[in-house]
């Protein structure tokens, strides 16, 4: 029979491998495929300027436009898979950037509050916190039936607390825990970085998710 630490190690390994793979694909898309397409695009523009036949010029211009759109798609897909700001600027700027995309995708306004000064945390911790927040926000878009929500970051010397709150439909937490793998994954992910994730919800009143991570 497997012991708890072994199970924890396996979960940690699976999640970490998945994150590494996502990051690798995102980087490959951005730095590999994206760059090759950009070379093709500049070549296409060069051909367009050299071609004299009007009909052919228009055709090449259309192809260049399609390539430009594909490059943009690749770039956005790479950012969606793994936000580069997480590794460079940190969790808070990555979250701000994600919230902009979230509001323009789902029409839900998220009020972001930050208390304290952002502390340096490891990339593993920041990607975990980002994924847990992403899952919580995705659940709001899918189930909460609300126009707005809030997310508060509180940086203390020894602890980071994040609260995600909405005043939507709410749900029965124990029932949802049995059905939803998403909620279980949020708790599991936080457990793996020695953090905690507590979910409280009341039907017709809304949901509050408290995420904490000890800072050393």
């Amino acid at each position: 029979m497997e012991t708890q630490p072994v199970k924890k190690n396996i979960s940690s390994y699976i999640i970490q491998s998945q994150e590494d793979e996502i990051k690798r694909i995102a980087l490959e898309l951005h730095e590999g495929v994206g760059q090759t397409l950009y070379s093709l695009y500049t070549g296409m523009e060069f051909i367009e300027s050299a071609v004299e036949q009007q009909e052919m010029k228009g055709y090449v211009a259309d192809m260049a436009q399609m390539l430009e759109r594909t490059i943009q798609e690749i770039r956005l897909l790479a950012v969606e898979l793994h936000p580069p700001t997480l590794g460079t600027l940190g969790l808070l700027p990555a979250m701000k950037s994600y919230l902009k995309l979230y509001t323009s995708t789902y029409g839900i306004v998220i009020d972001l509050h930050n208390q304290g000064i952002e502390a340096a945390i490891s990339e593993r911790e920041s990607i975990t916190l980002f994924r847990v927040c992403q899952e919580a926000l995705a659940n709001i878009a899918r189930f909460a039936d609300t126009m707005s929500a809030s997310i508060t970051f509180q940086w203390k010397p020894n602890q980071l607390s994040i609260n995600i709150k909405d005043q939507g439909k709410g749900f029965d937490v124990s029932e949802a825990m049995k059905k939803s793998t998403g909620i279980a994954a949020m708790i599991e992910r936080m457990c793996l970085i020695n953090g905690e994730c507590k979910i409280t919800s009341k039907i017709s009143e809304g949901t509050s998710i408290d995420i904490t991570l000890p800072l050393y």
Partner: peptide, 25 residues
Amino acid sequence: GPDVKWHYAAGNINEKFKRITVRYG
């Protein structure tokens, strides 16, 4: 640009549609 935005609605239960923009495709 290529993005697509909801401009008009009837029978809507909220105003979220006004903020929704989806990418081409």
